[in-house]
Design a protein around this nucleic acid. Structure first.
Lengths: 325, 325
DNA sequence: ATCCAGTGCTTATACGTATAACCACCCCCC
DNA sequence: GGGGGGTGGTTATACGTATAAGCACTGGAT
């Protein structure tokens, strides 16, 4: 049973006493094929008995389309938001008959990454926008990829994208701090590779709110946070880039004996589950992703069927006011 | 350029003025093939010019082996530990010529999941042990999967596994609490689906340490945590299942006005980056995964080549003592 | 001159599937 | 008794690749 090679549709055909074509017609129950109910069940029985599983590669070769949606996940450690988004997207696309596959993409990008993806002849590709270059997109198109969707902060002119509204996050956070009467407003920009660009985008948004905003570069490091906090005079409102940085600052402020929000107000972004547990409770900007998976799935499906072109979505932002501001 | 069908090795052959076989020999540079250097470069040029990318499905069909390592990730939200493990594993296997692909596996398990995976004809499968059943394993074997590796807490008798030493975590945590003179020792068992079994395993380990341990069921919920904390008398040592639960308890203890570690000691598990930011700093049990990816990759490679059989790894545990115990 | 060994390719085939095209049969109706 | 139209299949082929087997030629050695 286990030393043998996998059963093929030909094996099933022999076992059921029919031709291989009949097996194919039955198992895919192609509409318009004229096979008697009796033969159908004989074929299905044989397939079950032999443990037949179709060969995706062969099918792809024959039909010219794999039904695979390749998701190239970013290198940045994934939070619960991204994980949840992918899970929902998987469910949506699975329900429409696609096979969702995540591809680790070890640091490659551009044409090199695109070539690796193209080998699988995916029907669609969802990729971190920072991995996509124009030349890479050409490679994918040439390999027959029907739908290409970018995720990230920079709008790609060539492919529809799910954009994170980083500017909006910054603007919303700063407006809130101003409303609460905070005067020097400070925006933290993370120094880490991959986060820095987004930090700068959020800073731009912060500055668009109409008040002067001081930018401060910060690595995710307790000593640096302590040094930053030591320079505060009191009264500041700090937009901490995200909840993780906000938690870093809350700890540093606690160590320095500063009161939140009495001396300094802090606001994060993401509404992480763990960030609800800080004391004081952390105010934050929550990106609402709940509508994204279904819309992405619909868009992919339309692009594959060729009935629609690009469409850019933007997340909805919501301010969650707790105790830290 | 973009309305065309993808270039095949036959197209490359025509462009280079050679046969398709020659193209295959050159691009895979098969040792022992006698092709002149001049022809080789002509072929490579043509391939580059046409943007040729091999068709993985066709190759799989021909060779009978895909080189794909399918990783079926668990449904439980992934922490940085698991993410890091996968990333390293990806790198290791990528370096050995495998293609690592993550498969979302929307809640399916057993035979249904195995059939879905088998369609891709992976060379190896790394799966959450809770998704693997004996029948499922048979399906994979029958589909030609050479290496099957389980991850999780229950040792599978049939496949080698990377085991989390949940018992060890419990035992180590409780021994530490006892050393610090804590008298009633309490172990938290999470109520969430998927976490509960592991919680029970950690509880067994906790009880193997030789002192009486009270178990308490807890959902990840602030109100429940507050109710639990309200029942404490003081002096307790609490093993909180993991860092997230520990943070939940720290918040509840803070709200109740109890001092940590003065009144109650708390220890977690995982050494999450965010958990280093609590005040007091959280003591924890850190699973050391650094050796796992390389060992898993080696094991997979050996199983594929048929030069080795099973081998069970266990993570190394380390106690990190900070301020909460 | 003939044979042998090597070099540099080409020809032919099989992998597993989906589907267009064809075929045999039966029944009914003029 | 012959044509027409449904019913229930079968035969043949192509998808793109890897590789075994063969073939033409060249340059010695016998």
């Amino acid at each position: 049973m286990s030393g043998n090679r996998p059963a093929t549709s030909m094996d099933v055909a022999r076992a059921a006493g029919v031709s291989q074509a009949t097996v194919s017609y039955v198992l895919n129950d192609r509409p318009g094929s004229r096979i008697s109910e009796e033969t159908r069940s004989r074929v299905r029985d044989a397939a079950e008995r032999l443990g037949y599983v179709p060969h995706a590669g062969a099918r792809t070769l024959r039909t010219g389309s794999s039904g695979v949606v390749l998701v190239a996940v970013p290198d940045i450690p994934q939070g619960p938001l991204a994980t949840g988004l992918l899970e929902e997207l998987d469910k949506e696309l699975g329900g429409r008959g696609y096979t969702v596959v995540q591809y680790g993409a070890r640091r490659t990008k551009g044409v090199a990454a695109a070539k690796a993806w193209a080998e699988l002849r995916p029907t669609a590709v969802v990729a971190d926008a920072s991995r996509l270059t124009r030349a890479g997109i050409e490679v994918l198109r040439a390999a027959g990829v029907k739908a290409i969707i970018g995720m990230g902060h920079a709008p790609m002119d060539d492919v529809p994208s799910l954009l994170t509204d980083h500017e909006g996050v910054g603007a919303l956070a700063v407006r809130h701090l101003v409303e609460r009467g905070r005067d020097p407003v400070v925006a933290v920009v993370p120094r880490e590779e991959g986060l820095r660009e987004m930090g700068l985008a959020r800073l731009r948004g912060a500055r668009s709110a109409g008040v002067p905003v001081t930018a401060v570069d910060l690595a995710f490091d307790e000593a640096e946070a302590a040094a930053f906090v030591a320079g505060l005079k009191g009264g500041e409102g700090v937009f901490a880039y995200n909840d993780e940085y906000a938690m870093l600052l809350l700890a540093a402020l606690h160590d320095a004996g500063l009161r939140v929000p009495g001396d300094v107000a802090v606001i994060g972004c993401d509404d992480l589950p763990l960030a609800r547990l800080t004391r004081p409770r952390l105010s934050t900007v929550r990106p609402d992703l709940s509508a994204a998976p279904a819309r992405m799935a619909t868009l992919i499906d339309r692009l594959v069927r060729g009935t629609a072109c690009g469409d850019v979505d933007v997340w909805t932002l919501q301010l969650i006011e707790r105790d830290s501001t």
